[in-house]
Design a protein around this nucleic acid. Structure first.
Length: 418
RNA sequence: GUGGCUGUAGCUCAGUGGCAGAGCCCCGGAUUGUGAUUCCGGUUGUCGCGGGUUCGAUCCCCGUCAGCCACCCCA
């Protein structure tokens, strides 16, 4: 037997139904982003490995799909878009009025072990505002993220957007006398605090000269600890989105380059998965592109959100409707008399020109077969072309009712293309 | 990177230390221009791969690869 090929580990085939589901997600990402006045951009899928090393450090290379190309260049399949965005924005920063409101939908690659909600290849929606320091920019992104979820069909009972602020933590740590390295260690402890046994947390904080109680008290202070968060909360409340938001200073997203407010969207089911996340990164454009530019943004991957949609009543129905619509057929033209092949071809073209989705048999199948195919296609109508042409028979495939229609009246008889 | 579970027809899965199975799907047929049901017929397997035990292994053992799940990580 010949070798059976299958996808590489962590890579996916998208059969038509999967592709329709993927496009449903893409459609909503794009629709909501445009509603907020964002414009779409795209970058290269292959970048110099150094671009990611610069941003994230040498150890990142272990998680990259990287290789040496035929020109001896060290290159990587992109694992994320932010460094590319920073380069692009910096390179032509004088060409654009600030703030930039840019979004992108693209495919990314990470050399990791494949598991639920995570593959070596995935699609990600990226949405960023560049050249704006106000916390209202952060709030705008959070509102957009919430509206994405609502557009998928989720409600406040399904998810929550949790807000934190790296600045608040840095001020807290500095007030306790921690140096830069101490702050970094401290933030990692906070990041894992929820999943770490209390005794170990006490020990870790103790080695930094901190007590668990004072850290907990700070987390409990919520918005009072951060003017930026207070501003964001007020803005989101004014938009009527308060129900979707909560302050949780315990949220600390891989704080490598975040410099201010950060946020994540979590599903409230037992999964408690993060479906989106982002924050402010005012230093990164300077680091990568050499031009100082304030920036904030967030990303949402396709795998977790699609899992969540399929598991949730409401969003799942919207997805199913989109998949069904994708495969919809309006009419099948049935050739009942072989001598009318040319007339049938002409009829097919006329209907397609009018915007209908039309199928017809590509081989000389028996009429019974053609009807069976028509029924299985899900078409609403069969248009029967036979000896009586230019008179046609229009058959409603669901009700099985037939009526005679002149050839020139078929487009009208079918109604409007959807 | 660590551990658990699973690999048998295109799909979902039975099965037994002694000839490889079912359902579904797919294809063809049941005479003239109408779909369902039904009936008849048909295709497809290195039983994931490699080794070991055995007279004989799809079955037992070891390894390996792949998938799923949990942990680690998560820009």
């Amino acid at each position: 037997m010949a070798t059976r090929f299958q996808t590489l580990p962590g890579f996916r085939d998208f059969y038509p139904e999967d592709c329709a589901a993927r496009n449903h997600v893409f459609d909503i990402w794009r629709r909501v982003a445009r509603r907020y006045g964002f414009v779409e951009y795209e970058g290269p899928i292959l970048e110099p490995t150094e671009l990611y090393r610069r941003k994230s450090g040498a150890e990142i290379v272990n998680q990259l799909f990287c290789f040496t190309d035929k020109g001896e260049r060290e290159v990587s399949m992109r694992p994320e878009l932010t460094p590319t965005l920073a380069r692009m924005a910096a390179a032509r920063q004088r060409d654009f009025r600030k703030p930039l409101r840019w979004f992108s939908i693209g495919q990314f690659f990470r050399y990791e072990k494949h598991q639920k909600g995570r593959g070596r290849e995935f699609y990600q929606f990226n949405c960023d505002i560049l050249g704006e320091e106000s916390a209202l920019a952060d709030a705008e992104l959070m509102a957009l993220a919430i509206d994405l979820m609502r557009e998928f069909g989720f409600t406040a009972s399904h998810f929550r957007l949790r807000i934190s602020d790296r600045d608040a933590w840095v001020r807290f740590a500095a007030g306790k006398g921690l140096d830069e390295a101490g702050v970094a260690t401290f933030l990692q402890v906070i990041d894992k605090m929820e999943r770490t046994p209390e005794g170990k947390v006490v020990e870790q904080l103790g080695s930094l000269g901190l007590a668990l109680d004072e850290v907990r008290a700070f987390i409990a202070s919520g918005a009072e600890a951060s003017p930026a968060i207070a501003r964001i909360l007020a803005d989101l409340a004014a938009r009527g989105l308060a129900d979707y938001v909560e302050v949780d200073l315990g949220i600390v997203r891989g704080l490598a380059y975040y410099t201010g407010p950060v946020f994540e969207i979590f599903d409230i089911g037992k999964g408690m998965r993060a479906v989106a996340g982002g924050g402010r990164y005012d230093q990164l454009v300077g680091l990568v592109g050499g031009v100082e530019m304030a920036a904030c943004g967030f990303a949402m991957g396709d795998m977790v959100i699609t899992d969540l949609i399929r598991e949730t009543e409401g969003p799942a129905e919207r997805l199913a409707a989109a998949v069904e619509e994708n495969a919809r057929v309006d009419a099948c033209v049935v050739l009942a008399d072989p001598s009318k092949e040319a007339e049938a071809a002409s009829m097919v073209q006329t209907l397609r020109d009018a915007g209908f989705r039309v199928l017809t048999s590509l081989s000389s199948a028996k009429v019974a077969k053609q009807f069976q195919a028509a029924e299985q296609s899900g078409a609403r109508f069969a248009v029967i072309v036979g000896v009586e042409f230019p008179e046609l028979t229009l058959r409603d495939l669901a009700s099985r009712a037939e009526r005679a229609v002149p050839a020139e009246g078929v487009v009208e008889a079918l109604g409007r293309p959807r």
